[in-house]
Design a binder for these strands. Structure first.
Lengths: 339, 339
DNA sequence: TTGTAAGCGTTATCAG
DNA sequence: CTGATAACGCTTACAA
C-alpha cells in the first residue's frame, strides 16, 4: 500500500540524490559551497520531485522569514494601493515577500495585527503614521523588529519615517486658496483620533490662516469617516450654515469627491459659488468633473523608498534614517477665485 | 549577565505557571480540557509574559496554519478590492488570516505565488477565474489544498466556483443596447489570454448579436491592458474608423471611464453620438459624468460566500459546491437610443 | 486532568 | 566539501 501522498521533504531529496540533508540545504541556500557535480545531481532530484521548501520549518530553523509585514488602515480605498504596490515591488526584487493586513482604522485591530505579524516571523514592519500607543514601539524594539513609518514625516520619533510633511503640504494649499481671496474657509477631515496625517493637515490650514491674519477659530471643521457619502453629508451640513464658506478644504480626495457630488446635487456651482480641494491626487481627482485641485503625494516613490530603508535596517541592523519627500499642489478646476 | 531578550516561549509560560507545556498548549487551543484553577493560573502567566505563540512552530506541529491565501490579478485597481475585503472579513470572523498576493495578470507569477502560499502552509486558496494550466489544479489536488475560484461561475471545472456568469451578464447588457436600436457595436476588452472573464464577456456580446440577427463578425474588438489611458486610446482608435460604432461596450468600468474621458476630449457627445457601457459597477461608474451604464456585480456577497465555501471545504473536507450569483444591468446616463 | 516525549522539516555547528 | 546531529517552539498521542 502506497503511503498517502504528501509534499516531498529535504530528506526525500537527499535520499534520491544520495547525499545528506545538509548538502541539499546548502545547495539551495548557498550553492557555491558545494561542488558542481553533486550540486547538479541534487538539483535534478529537487526538480524531479517538485520539491518546495517548507516555509514554517525554514523560519523556525533560520529565525528569518524573508517576510515583511505592512498594516494599512484600509484596503478598500485607493490611497494606499499605489504606494503599497511600489513597496511590494521593491521588496520582492530583494527577495522578500509582503504580508498585508488592514486595521480598518482601529488601533486595537492594528495592535493585534502587529502581534500576529511578529508571531509569523516578519523580519520587518511597515506602519502608517506615528500615532499609536508607545508601548507598541517598545514591544517591537524588544523583539528587535525594524519598523518604518510611512505617509507621514516626522523626525525624532520612535521609528524612522519615510513620508511627507502633511502639515506643510496642506498649508501650501491653504495659502493658495487664500491668495484667491477666500476668507470663509471650512474643512472636511478624516477622524483625527489616532490619525496624525489628518490632524496635521488641519493644523496646516490653521497655520496658513494665522499667517494671513484670519482668526483660526473661524475654521469650521467636520470630521467623518472616509467615504464618499460622508463627504457629501458633511458638505451639505456646511452649506446649510447661515454663513456659507466660500472654500471647503477636504482632508483627502475621497471626501472631496463626495463634496463635489453633493454640490452638483444641490445645484451649487463649483468653483463659482464654492471652491473645493482634495488631498492625495488619486485617480478619481483627475476623472471627476470639475476636476479636483489637490495635493499630489509621490505615493510610488514613498513606497519604494520605504522598502529600501526597511530592508537596509533589516540587513545591516541600522537604526534607520527618516526621509522627507516633497509634495506639490496640483491646480485643476475645483478651485477658483472667490466670487 | 542577563540573556539577550527574546520572545517568551511555551516553556517559559509553563515554568512560570508551574505546569507542563502540554497543559499550556491545551489552555490555548482547547481551554475546556483543563480545569478552571490551573487555566486561570496559566492565563495569568501568559499575559504577564506577553506571550504570543510562535506561528511557524505551530504550523509545523499542527500541520494547520489557519491561513488562507488569495491571489488576485492586481491590487492597483478597485475591482477586486471590495470583494476581497468581504472575503477577508468573513475568514477573519472564522479565525483565519488572509494572505494576499497579486500576479499582475501573469500566469507564471501566479503559479509561483501558489507554490509560495502552499509552502507557507496555506490551508486553502482563493483564485480568480478558471483559466490556468490544469497541472496547477492537479498539484493543489495532490497537496490536498482546497481551492475556490471566484469572479467566474462555471460548474464542472477542476475547482468549485463562486461567481457569476460573465457571458450571460454581458449578453443581457448587449441585448439592452440593441433594444435601443444600436447595430454598429464595438468592444474594448481586457486581454483575453488567460482571462476567462474577459473572453466570456465578449462571447456574451456575440450571443446577443446572433440572437438579434446581426453578423457577429461586424463586432470590432480591441484588447488592451487594464488602464484608463488604454481605454482612452482604444476608444480613439474606434472613433477614427470609417464607420464609427454607435455603441462601445467595455469589458470593465476602468476601460469605460477611459473611453468616456476620450470622448469628452474629442468633443463627442455621450450618449447622443455614441453610447458607452462598463462592467463591474465600481465606485467610479457612479462618480463619472456621464455616469456609466454598467453591469452590477455583487462583489461583497461573492467575497463572503467564497469564504464560507472555502472554509467549509477546509474544515469538513468536502469537495465544494459551485454557487452562481446574479448580476444586473444598472442603467445610467452613458447609454441612450441610437441617434 | 495533567505530564512525558516523539515528532514536524529546516538550518547551523562541528567534525571528518 | 560533506555528513551527523542538535536545536527551533509547538502539538498530540500515550501514559500516569
Amino acid at each position: 500500500m502506497p503511503k498517502p501522498w504528501s509534499a516531498p521533504t529535504l530528506d526525500d531529496v537527499a535520499k534520491k540524490a544520495g547525499v545528506s540533508t545538509a548538502t541539499v540545504s546548502r545547495c539551495l541556500n548557498d550553492p557555491k559551497r558545494v561542488v558542481e557535480a553533486t550540486r547538479t545531481r541534487v538539483m535534478a532530484a529537487v526538480s524531479e520531485l517538485g520539491y518546495t521548501p517548507n516555509f514554517a520549518a525554514r523560519v523556525m530553523a533560520a529565525k528569518r522569514s524573508f517576510t515583511i509585514g505592512a498594516i494599512i488602515p484600509t484596503m478598500e480605498n485607493a490611497i494606499f494601493a499605489r504606494g503599497l504596490q511600489a513597496f511590494q515591488e521593491e521588496i520582492h526584487n530583494q527577495g522578500y515577500t509582503l504580508l498585508v493586513s488592514s486595521s480598518a482604522y482601529q488601533p486595537e485591530a492594528e495592535e493585534e495585527q502587529i502581534r500576529t505579524l511578529v508571531a509569523r516571523g516578519a523580519d520587518g514592519l511597515l506602519l502608517i503614521g506615528h500615532d499609536r500607543d508607545p508601548r507598541i514601539f517598545d514591544y517591537l524594539d524588544r523583539q528587535k523588529i525594524p519598523v518604518v513609518v510611512a505617509w507621514s514625516f516626522a523626525p525624532n520619533q520612535s521609528a524612522p519615517s519615510v513620508g511627507f510633511d502633511n502639515r506643510q503640504a496642506m498649508q501650501a494649499l491653504a495659502e493658495q486658496v487664500m491668495k484667491l481671496g477666500h476668507t470663509r474657509l471650512a474643512a472636511i477631515s478624516a477622524l483625527t483620533q489616532g490619525n496624525d496625517r489628518a490632524r496635521f493637515r488641519i493644523e496646516g490650514i490653521r497655520d496658513a490662516m494665522r499667517a494671513n491674519g484670519l482668526p483660526e477659530t473661524s475654521l469650521n471643521v467636520i470630521e467623518t469617516t472616509y467615504e464618499i457619502e460622508n463627504g457629501a453629508a458633511a458638505f451639505e451640513q456646511l452649506m446649510s450654515l447661515p454663513q456659507r464658506p466660500t472654500a471647503v478644504l477636504c482632508g483627502n480626495d475621497v471626501l472631496a469627491v463626495g463634496a463635489v457630488r453633493q454640490a452638483e446635487k444641490m445645484g451649487i456651482s463649483i468653483p463659482d459659488e464654492v471652491s473645493i480641494t482634495g488631498f492625495d491626487d488619486i485617480e478619481l481627482a483627475r476623472i471627476i468633473r470639475p476636476s479636483l485641485t489637490t495635493v499630489h503625494v509621490p505615493h510610488r516613490e514613498m513606497g519604494r523608498k520605504a522598502a529600501v530603508e526597511l530592508i537596509d535596517m533589516i540587513e545591516t541592523g541600522s537604526t534607520g534614517q527618516s526621509l522627507r519627500l516633497e509634495t506639490n499642489v496640483i491646480n485643476r478646476e475645483s478651485l477658483g477665485p472667490v466670487a
